[in-house]
Amino acid sequence: MSKLTIGIADMKMAKGEGMLITYALGSCIGICLYDPKIKLGALIHIMLPINMETGRKSPMKYADTGIRETIKQMEAKGASRARMTAKIAGGAKMFEISGGSLGNIGQRNIESVRLNLKKEGIRLLNEDVGGSVARTLLFDVATGQGCVRSYGRPELIF
Protein backbone atom coordinates (compact mmCIF):
# COMPACT_ATOMS: atom_id res chain seq x y z
CA MET A 1 0.00 0.00 0.00
CA SER A 2 1.35 3.41 -0.88
CA LYS A 3 2.15 5.73 1.98
CA LEU A 4 2.01 9.48 1.68
CA THR A 5 3.46 11.77 4.33
CA ILE A 6 1.94 15.19 4.83
CA GLY A 7 4.18 17.87 6.32
CA ILE A 8 3.16 21.00 8.17
CA ALA A 9 1.09 23.41 6.08
CA ASP A 10 0.65 20.72 3.45
CA MET A 11 -2.12 18.60 1.89
CA LYS A 12 -2.11 15.37 -0.09
CA MET A 13 -4.83 13.30 -1.73
CA ALA A 14 -5.15 9.62 -2.57
CA LYS A 15 -7.81 7.72 -4.49
CA GLY A 16 -8.90 4.08 -4.16
CA GLU A 17 -6.22 3.05 -1.72
CA GLY A 18 -3.28 4.46 0.18
CA MET A 19 -2.33 5.60 3.64
CA LEU A 20 -2.13 9.30 4.39
CA ILE A 21 0.02 10.12 7.41
CA THR A 22 0.84 13.30 9.23
CA TYR A 23 3.20 13.23 12.21
CA ALA A 24 3.30 14.98 15.56
CA LEU A 25 0.28 17.23 15.53
CA GLY A 26 0.59 19.49 18.55
CA SER A 27 -1.56 22.58 18.42
CA CYS A 28 -1.83 21.91 14.67
CA ILE A 29 -4.83 19.99 13.33
CA GLY A 30 -4.99 17.16 10.83
CA ILE A 31 -8.19 17.21 8.80
CA CYS A 32 -9.23 14.10 6.84
CA LEU A 33 -11.77 14.82 4.12
CA TYR A 34 -13.35 11.82 2.42
CA ASP A 35 -15.80 10.99 -0.32
CA PRO A 36 -16.70 7.34 0.41
CA LYS A 37 -18.39 6.67 -2.94
CA ILE A 38 -15.35 7.31 -5.10
CA LYS A 39 -12.90 6.61 -2.23
CA LEU A 40 -11.15 9.91 -2.56
CA GLY A 41 -9.43 11.07 0.61
CA ALA A 42 -7.39 14.13 1.52
CA LEU A 43 -5.39 14.97 4.61
CA ILE A 44 -4.54 18.57 5.50
CA HIS A 45 -2.10 19.63 8.23
CA ILE A 46 -3.04 23.15 9.26
CA MET A 47 -1.17 25.26 11.79
CA LEU A 48 -3.24 28.40 12.36
CA PRO A 49 -6.96 29.27 12.43
CA ILE A 50 -7.36 32.17 10.00
CA ASN A 51 -5.47 33.29 6.93
CA MET A 52 -4.66 36.97 7.19
CA GLU A 53 -1.53 36.83 5.06
CA THR A 54 -1.13 39.16 2.16
CA GLY A 55 -0.30 37.26 -0.99
CA ARG A 56 -1.56 33.99 0.53
CA LYS A 57 1.28 31.84 -0.62
CA SER A 58 0.52 28.86 1.60
CA PRO A 59 -3.23 28.27 1.89
CA MET A 60 -2.73 24.90 3.62
CA LYS A 61 -1.17 26.60 6.65
CA TYR A 62 -4.58 27.90 7.72
CA ALA A 63 -7.86 26.19 8.60
CA ASP A 64 -10.10 28.43 6.52
CA THR A 65 -8.17 28.56 3.25
CA GLY A 66 -6.90 24.98 3.69
CA ILE A 67 -10.37 23.47 3.92
CA ARG A 68 -11.76 25.61 1.10
CA GLU A 69 -8.87 24.91 -1.28
CA THR A 70 -8.91 21.16 -0.55
CA ILE A 71 -12.64 20.85 -1.20
CA LYS A 72 -12.11 22.65 -4.50
CA GLN A 73 -9.35 20.25 -5.51
CA MET A 74 -11.41 17.23 -4.45
CA GLU A 75 -14.40 18.41 -6.44
CA ALA A 76 -12.15 18.81 -9.46
CA LYS A 77 -11.38 15.09 -9.08
CA GLY A 78 -15.05 14.17 -9.03
CA ALA A 79 -15.92 14.30 -5.33
CA SER A 80 -19.28 15.57 -4.23
CA ARG A 81 -19.58 17.98 -1.34
CA ALA A 82 -22.83 16.35 -0.20
CA ARG A 83 -21.11 12.99 0.31
CA MET A 84 -17.99 14.42 1.90
CA THR A 85 -17.25 13.71 5.54
CA ALA A 86 -14.51 14.89 7.89
CA LYS A 87 -12.49 13.52 10.79
CA ILE A 88 -10.12 15.71 12.73
CA ALA A 89 -7.34 15.29 15.31
CA GLY A 90 -4.98 17.68 17.08
CA GLY A 91 -5.43 21.07 18.70
CA ALA A 92 -3.55 20.19 21.87
CA LYS A 93 -1.98 22.58 24.32
CA MET A 94 1.61 21.41 24.55
CA PHE A 95 2.78 23.76 27.28
CA GLU A 96 0.94 25.20 30.24
CA ILE A 97 2.20 28.79 30.32
CA SER A 98 0.92 31.25 32.85
CA GLY A 99 0.05 34.53 31.18
CA GLY A 100 0.23 35.17 27.44
CA SER A 101 -1.81 33.78 24.59
CA LEU A 102 0.62 30.97 23.81
CA GLY A 103 -1.56 28.05 24.79
CA ASN A 104 -4.70 29.11 23.01
CA ILE A 105 -3.66 28.38 19.44
CA GLY A 106 -4.85 24.77 19.68
CA GLN A 107 -8.29 25.74 20.94
CA ARG A 108 -8.61 28.48 18.32
CA ASN A 109 -7.66 25.97 15.65
CA ILE A 110 -10.34 23.52 16.81
CA GLU A 111 -13.02 26.19 16.75
CA SER A 112 -11.96 27.48 13.35
CA VAL A 113 -11.88 23.99 11.80
CA ARG A 114 -15.36 23.14 13.15
CA LEU A 115 -16.73 26.48 11.96
CA ASN A 116 -15.25 26.20 8.49
CA LEU A 117 -16.43 22.62 8.00
CA LYS A 118 -19.92 23.73 8.97
CA LYS A 119 -19.74 26.70 6.64
CA GLU A 120 -18.77 24.44 3.75
CA GLY A 121 -21.54 21.97 4.65
CA ILE A 122 -19.20 19.06 5.49
CA ARG A 123 -20.31 16.57 8.15
CA LEU A 124 -17.84 16.14 11.00
CA LEU A 125 -17.97 12.41 11.75
CA ASN A 126 -15.41 12.10 14.48
CA GLU A 127 -12.79 14.07 16.35
CA ASP A 128 -9.95 13.56 18.79
CA VAL A 129 -8.97 17.08 19.81
CA GLY A 130 -7.70 19.16 22.70
CA GLY A 131 -5.85 17.87 25.73
CA SER A 132 -2.10 18.12 26.00
CA VAL A 133 -0.75 15.23 23.92
CA ALA A 134 0.84 15.25 20.49
CA ARG A 135 -0.85 13.05 17.90
CA THR A 136 0.18 11.25 14.75
CA LEU A 137 -2.77 10.81 12.41
CA LEU A 138 -3.12 8.00 9.87
CA PHE A 139 -5.94 7.88 7.37
CA ASP A 140 -6.71 4.80 5.27
CA VAL A 141 -8.25 5.91 2.00
CA ALA A 142 -9.55 2.44 1.11
CA THR A 143 -11.78 2.24 4.19
CA GLY A 144 -12.07 5.83 5.39
CA GLN A 145 -10.76 4.76 8.78
CA GLY A 146 -8.58 7.04 10.86
CA CYS A 147 -6.06 6.11 13.50
CA VAL A 148 -4.46 8.35 16.13
CA ARG A 149 -1.13 7.45 17.72
CA SER A 150 0.07 9.29 20.85
CA TYR A 151 2.81 8.95 23.40
CA GLY A 152 1.71 7.08 26.51
CA ARG A 153 -1.82 6.44 25.25
CA PRO A 154 -3.32 3.45 23.41
CA GLU A 155 -3.97 3.81 19.70
CA LEU A 156 -7.33 5.22 18.84
CA ILE A 157 -9.26 4.04 15.80
CA PHE A 158 -11.94 6.39 14.52
Partner: peptide
Protein backbone atom coordinates in the same frame (compact mmCIF):
# COMPACT_ATOMS: atom_id res chain seq x y z
CA UNK B 1 6.12 14.36 24.04
CA UNK B 2 6.90 14.11 20.31
CA UNK B 3 9.54 16.66 19.43
CA UNK B 4 7.76 17.63 16.21
CA UNK B 5 4.88 18.96 18.26
CA UNK B 6 7.24 20.75 20.65
CA UNK B 7 9.09 22.44 17.77
CA UNK B 8 5.74 23.45 16.32
CA UNK B 9 5.06 25.69 19.33
CA UNK B 10 7.40 28.54 18.28
CA UNK B 11 6.41 27.93 14.66
CA UNK B 12 2.72 28.37 15.35
CA UNK B 13 3.42 31.39 17.52
Amino acid sequence: DMQGAIMAVPMAQ
